[in-house]
Simulated scan of single mutants.
Amino acid sequence: MSSNTLKLLQKHKKTILEIWMKNQLTDDGLREDLISNEDLREQSEELVAALVANLSGNDLEDLDGDNWSSVIEILGGIAITRARQGFSPRETGRFVHSLKESILEVLQIQIKDPQQLFDESMKIIRVMDNLSIVTFETFIKGREEVILRQTDEIAEISTPVIRVWDGILALPIIGTLDSSRTQIVMENLLQEIVETGSSIAILDISGVPAVDSLVAQHLIKTVSATRLMGAECIISGIRPEIAQTVVHLGIDLSNIITKASLASALAYAFKVLRLEVRKTNSVNKINNI
């Protein structure tokens, strides 16, 4: 970029910022629910200052150079923040694209020579397009981090191990049971067996939409692991359609205790532990036999 154009951009840095802010604030896609106008202006001002300061030199397309590190760092921070705040890729890309439009608008006003305007505009377009790619890549990484964190949080929430009584644990499973989730289920259940010294674990599959051969194998593995820890495992929530599917697929669950409901499984667990439920004065009471 010519020294004259660089001086021009430095001189009209505030004009670029004002045009850019005007374009952003009048954009129909402005997300005031995700970022305040003050924060938006602060981000924009910081980026404009860093960008204009780094437009000198001949390596305008080499964004890996040291002189572009500050701009990349600012854009990366903005992209990550926007990914976490809930901005869409289009909205984040529009943020950088509107800056390019603002710079080109200033060049069109200040440069009168058509050839010079074309040359300098193409340089700005190439730089801003490359920065848009960097911003998009960083945004995608930030969004992936958010998705992975949310997936882990959902997995933890969806596999709670509940201590329903002394020596009895229950683990309600909701949703599809795949290999990775089976591992989480087993780890949580086995850890809780060790910590509580429980002898009976109930796996309730009432919330599992369907049971196929793969899901059945996962359940069998969980039961086997539980038995190796010295605890008996009961599978509850066997609905009629699930029972028919299991029979149709030829899956052998004969060595596993199964019950139609969690209440039935709990009653069976009480029986094994020689506990019984009695109603006395409208209050449920459990006594040792």
Rank of each mutant, 00 (worst) to 15 (best):
173 I>V: 09
206 S>P: 01
195 E>R: 14
171 L>V: 05
142 G>Y: 03
199 S>M: 03
215 V>W: 02
164 V>Y: 05
147 I>M: 13
211 V>M: 12
139 F>I: 11
180 S>L: 14
137 E>M: 11
145 E>C: 09
130 N>D: 13
208 V>G: 05
179 S>K: 11
168 I>C: 07
170 A>V: 12
131 L>I: 06
198 S>A: 15
141 K>Y: 11
150 Q>V: 10
131 L>Y: 00
144 E>R: 13
132 S>T: 14
159 T>I: 04
130 N>R: 15
200 I>K: 02
200 I>Y: 00
182 T>I: 06
175 G>R: 04
212 D>E: 04
143 R>S: 13
202 I>Q: 13
204 D>L: 02
159 T>C: 01
201 A>V: 06
178 D>R: 05
153 E>I: 14
211 V>T: 07
174 I>D: 11
196 T>Q: 10
159 T>F: 01
152 D>Y: 11
151 T>L: 10
181 R>W: 04
165 W>N: 02
218 H>V: 10
157 I>W: 08
137 E>P: 04
169 L>Y: 03
163 R>C: 07
207 G>K: 05
188 N>T: 00
157 I>Y: 08
197 G>Q: 12
164 V>A: 13
177 L>F: 01
135 T>V: 12
157 I>R: 09
195 E>N: 13
156 E>S: 13
202 I>V: 15
202 I>K: 09
152 D>K: 15
191 Q>K: 15
173 I>Q: 04
206 S>E: 01
182 T>L: 02
131 L>H: 02
170 A>P: 09
187 E>T: 08
196 T>K: 03
174 I>L: 15
153 E>H: 07
212 D>T: 00
135 T>P: 05
216 A>F: 07
204 D>Q: 03
